[in-house]
Amino acid sequence: MIEVRLDSWLREFGPTGRQKLDADTVDHVLDALEAKYPRLKFKLRDETGQLRRYVRVFVDGEDVSTTTRGATVLDGARTIDIIHSIAGG
C-alpha cells in the first residue's frame, strides 16, 4: 500500500486528504483515483494521458513530473504527493 497525499484544491473534484492505494506505477495511482472519483478525470492528466503542465507528482519526496512521470515504478515507495505547482498571478 502506498499513501497518496492530495492537494487541498483537488477537494472540489472529490478526493480529500490521504488515500491508501495498491498500485505499481504513478499512472496506476492516478487510474485508481479517477475510478474512485470520476470528476478527477482529465484534471491531473489531459485526455492524451499526459500529466498537466502544472501538476506535480512527488514519489517519496522526489519530483517525477518531468522525468519518469506516469511510468514511474513505485517499487517500495511509501508516499506520493500530488500538488499544483507554483504558477499564475
Binding site: W9, R39, F42, K43, D46, T48, H84, A87
Partner: peptide
C-alpha cells in the same frame, strides 16, 4: 485552469450555482 485544464460549466439559476457538464475533450 492552468492547473486542471479546460471545462464547460452550466448554471440553471442565473449564476447562483454552477456545475461542470461534459467538456468536449479531443478523442483518445
Amino acid at each position: 485552469s492552468g492547473f486542471w485544464g479546460p471545462a464547460v460549466h452550466r448554471s440553471r439559476n442565473y449564476g447562483k450555482t454552477w456545475k461542470e457538464v461534459a467538456t468536449p475533450l479531443t478523442p483518445s
